[in-house]
């Protein structure tokens, strides 16, 4: 059996990739994908931990997180679309109406 640390390590790596993606990418869709990647990294961590401890909690949580991620995708893409209609761009740097 693969040791649990491999799964946790992969989860941490994916989470880090997602975080870096949010911070350095400027395309809103890619930023949003990076956020989804972070949530899925957490899902992997939850499943691995739940399995290692023999508790069902970790796996049940993942269902909740998936639902929340789905809702976030619907709302997030809707907002990105609304913003795109107003500005005709998905480049994060060009959203600069609100600044002091």
């Amino acid at each position: 059996m693969t040791p649990i640390n491999y799964y946790l390590g992969l989860g941490a790596l994916l989470f880090a990739i997602g975080t870096v993606g949010v911070l350095i990418r400027r395309n809103l869709i890619v930023v949003f994908m990076s956020i989804e990647l972070m949530l899925n990294a957490v899902n992997l961590t939850f499943i691995a931990l739940g399995r290692a401890m023999g508790s069902a909690d970790g796996q049940v949580i993942v269902f909740f997180v998936m639902i929340v991620a789905g809702v976030e995708a619907a709302v997030g893409l809707g907002i990105i679309l609304a913003a795109f209609r107003n500005r005709l761009t998905v480049n994060a740097d060009e959203f600069n109406l609100l600044r002091w």
Partner: peptide
């Protein structure tokens, strides 16, 4: 219709 509102929502959401 207000670009400021959608920009605010966008930043808040992300």
């Amino acid at each position: 219709r207000d670009p400021k509102s959608s920009e605010a929502g966008l930043k808040y959401f992300l």
